[in-house]
Design a protein around this nucleic acid. Structure first.
Length: 209
DNA sequence: GGACAGATTCTT
DNA sequence: AGAATCTGTCCC
């Protein structure tokens, strides 16, 4: 399967993130409609991107062709999923931040016992990955040719522009001027915007103002 | 080789 | 507000 965004240049990653709203992420018996995405570029232009400082073992797949899974572990315990964008050599990716489980609710619930309501099943990047049951070992697999555990499918109807909100990305301090977080207005599965707060260090060093 | 911050989530 | 505790980066 081929899609227009697979051939888009890395500089269009924000457009791709916007376009992927409403797409379906299918894996392990669960289907999730994407309601929140974020764009990340690389190499100098985007200080918040994992590819900003160059290629490492972790971000290597971002430097490859579009349409592959960039999975990474965060805070030592959670996994977040990105879809790579742009041609090989131009790192860029779209973070799948949240979605609504539209099929396989039982399977999703069994993987996410902490979720109290159905709208909490995939209302965050690590929650979404957990609900889909995608392991870190799926790193680098394709999301468009059916060979990997996760497949993206286009929506029957695209999300119209008037339903799309754009704003700064969640949890990042760099490049706050970029409105590279996209979400579907009013959707209950979209997480409320939270500015990043640094993890507390020694109490004696904490700022009081 | 060590310190530290982070594209998070759950519990107190 | 704190804990869990991996990965990359920066500084010695």
């Amino acid at each position: 399967m081929t899609y227009a965004w697979l051939d888009a240049p890395a500089t269009a990653v924000a457009d791709t993130a916007r376009q992927l709203l409403g797409w379906l992420a299918v894996a392990n018996g669960v289907t999730i409609r994407l309601t929140e995405t974020e764009a990340y570029a690389g190499l100098g232009e985007d200080p918040a991107s994992h590819a900003h400082r160059g290629r490492t073992a972790r971000n290597a797949v971002m430097f490859g062709p579009a349409g592959h899974l960039y999975l990474y572990r965060i805070y030592g315990l959670h996994t977040c999923a990105n879809v790579t964008c742009g041609p090989a050599g131009q790192p860029a990716a779209v973070l799948l931040r949240a979605g609504q489980v539209v099929d396989g609710v039982d399977a999703a619930r069994s993987r996410r016992p902490a979720a109290k309501r159905d709208i909490d099943l995939a209302s965050g990047p690590a929650r979404l990955v957990e609900a889909l049951g995608v392991p870190l070992t799926a790193y680098g697999t394709s999301v468009v040719d059916g060979t990997g555990p996760l497949t993206l499918r286009p929506p029957t109807e695209p999300v119209p522009d008037e339903r799309v909100l754009a704003g700064p990305r969640v949890g990042v301090t760099a490049a706050l001027d970029l409105a590279w977080r996209f979400s579907i207005a009013g959707d209950p599965t979209v997480s409320a915007y939270r500015r990043h707060v640094p993890r507390s260090r020694g109490k004696e060093l904490r700022r009081t103002s």
